[in-house]
Design a protein around this nucleic acid. Sequence first.
DNA 1: CTAAAGGCTGACCTGGGCGTCAAGGTCAAA
DNA 2: TTTGACCTTGACGCCCAGGTCAGCCTTTAG
Lengths: 137, 137
Amino acid sequence: MLIGELARASGVTVRALRYYEQQGLLQPERAANGYRQYDGRAVTKVRNIQLLLSNGFTAQDVRDFLPCLDDGDVSLVPACPPSVEAVTRKVAVLEERIAELAAVRDRLLQALSGNPTPQQPGTVARRHPAYTRTARG
Amino acid sequence: MLIGELARASGVTVRALRYYEQQGLLQPERAANGYRQYDGRAVTKVRNIQLLLSNGFTAQDVRDFLPCLDDGDVSLVPACPPSVEAVTRKVAVLEERIAELAAVRDRLLQALSGNPTPQQPGTVARRHPAYTRTARG
DNA sequence: CTAAAGGCTGACCTGGGCGTCAAGGTCAAA
DNA sequence: TTTGACCTTGACGCCCAGGTCAGCCTTTAG
């Protein structure tokens, strides 16, 4: 799979793919002519990278994520126990971000329904109802 | 409340507060000496702004959020019906972001538990269990 | 053979969210 | 009155995630 195909398949630009590689997030093979060669799993991987980057994580953060998410193949995990701690921390970060966004969402929904905010001022709602809706619908 | 106090109270820098104002996210009063004057609700507002910015939204995005979240006072909402549509769109964006992050979190948890991924390749998990954990909890 | 399409590296540019001076005004305490 | 903390605007700088252009090589189509 050449870089242009991967770009189209994963919805990012060729430039972004080269950037991700430069940041150590991708390590494609090289053909004899110097062209980058990606396998099919790279599509998932790139989507996950983009997903994290567009949610406020940095390339450095993503580096911490990927060792155990490599190419979306979770079965690789037992081979990388040293990063368990790092992954656990990342899960906590995600929990926090999710809770924050859910709180904002709840406030917007309250706003739309015209209800007052049942919370003490000084911060955004912390304890919120379970997340039940599915994306896009 | 002066800008330095607000900065300490809300956990951002003075520079950031001036930047938010420049971006149209804050409109403090001005004292006779030219000093910015904030009221207590600005603390919540600033925290919300920072929260959104650190989650991958731009100042422009935040501008769309704030008309109905002003100072965290949701009771102001009925006064701004024209932005209902914009807020609704933002809720959808939040739902999507939350779902994405929850999917990543689920994959990390699967990785930690060593389970295989029960999903078709090509994208991150889309339908995920309800969000049940509380932040830092 | 030639043109078009795609790939390569290197390098400079951009926009967003600030950090960091610079030069100066204001205010409370000593 | 002087010091020091805090405020003002303005301007330049930085990092990050790429965009864009230049100059060149490779592969496929006609």
